[in-house]
């Protein structure tokens, strides 16, 4: 059973004056158990629309979706899900701790569980100092952290996060990335939306790109990264000179030669270097990054 199963999902918003916006068109997507899935797309692509449908805030115009095998729209389906809304807002007359207690009650957690879990998530997101202050006085980033805290409180199997990194400082972003990696270690499923390719690169197993309501591609991130390698940068010592077809050579200080080797020539070049007794000190891939892949897909999708 997949953690998330989306079948032929479409959503058309009706706007005033008889207008229609096709926010989602025939989206089919599955996220396996234990997978970290990045949902990438430019502004207005339909990421939040998909996520709101999953969480039962809006009902689809066509198609179905399930989480943990339960159709969305059924309140029970959210029992095993932790959700972080886009630009979250929480009852601001409550303190962070009171809000977390409220959330725990919604999941039917016992007082002991609540106590332990609250302390844990507040610590993890570095909110202990603000725990007993009303949320009204929280900064944007603090609210975002609280949003993650309340999503993690009941230790769900599935995480649905709408732009988890938005509004966070670099420390916070790093923290969230670490948290997502930890969740993966624990075998949790994470489905998160973003428009930042670098975030996808470091934490995701797979990435789907959505443009104008249509899912363009779904790829394994390691394959994309491998496919994106166009060549290698090789540094050697112990050679005064090297020449090979297609290989660009620069002399660096300290007796170092730097070679730019095309992808298909790497093994051959390494052999040659070895036979001439060179010592290889560094091999680094030169890759076309995910960003340019993303931009390409978006450009394709907009046509």
């Amino acid at each position: 059973m997949n953690a998330i199963d989306i079948r032929n999902l479409s959503k058309t918003y009706r706007t005033r004056k008889w207008g229609r916006v096709d926010a989602l068109q025939d989206l089919t997507l599955s996220v396996g158990k234990g997978e970290v899935f990045g949902f990438l797309g430019p502004n207005g692509a339909g990421k939040s629309t998909t996520i709101k449908t999953l969480m039962g805030l809006i009902s689809p115009s066509a198609g179905t979706a399930q989480m943990a095998g339960v159709p969305v729209g059924d309140a029970r389906c959210r029992m095993k899900v932790g959700y972080l809304p886009e630009n979250p807002a929480f009852y601001d007359f409550l303190t962070a701790r009171e809000y977390l207690r409220f959330v725990a009650a919604m999941f039917g957690m016992s007082p002991q569980e609540t106590q332990a879990a609250t302390g844990k998530v507040l610590g993890l997101l570095e909110l202990e100092g603000a725990a007993d202050r009303p949320i009204r006085g929280f900064s944007k980033g603090m609210v975002q952290r609280l949003g993650l805290a309340q999503a993690m409180l009941h230790d769900p199997e599935i995480y649905v996060l709408d732009e988890p990194m938005s509004g966070l400082d670099p420390l916070g972003r790093a923290l969230v990335k670490n948290i997502i990696r930890d969740l993966k270690q624990q075998g949790k499923t994470v489905f998160f939306s973003t428009h930042i390719t670098a975030d996808v690169e470091v934490v995701c197993d797979r990435v789907g790109v959505i443009v104008k309501g249509k899912l363009q591609t779904v790829n394994a991130v390691h394959e994309l990264l491998a496919a994106g390698v166009v060549g290698y940068q090789v540094q050697v010592t112990g050679l005064s000179d090297f020449s090979g077809e297609g290989v660009e050579v620069t002399v660096r200080g300290g007796g170092i030669l730097e070679l730019q080797v095309p992808r298909e020539l790497l093994s051959l070049t390494l052999e040659k270097l070895g036979s001439r007794g060179a010592e290889i000190t560094l091999i680094e891939p030169n890759r076309q990054d995910l960003e340019s892949f993303f931009l390409e897909v978006v450009a394709q999708g907009k046509k």
């Binding site: 630009n87 979250p88 601001d92 919604m106």
Partner: peptide, 12 residues
């Protein structure tokens, strides 16, 4: 105040 997005998505 957009509270409902965070509350109605709990299993209530």
């Amino acid at each position: 105040r957009r509270y409902l997005a965070s509350v109605l998505t709990l299993p209530i």
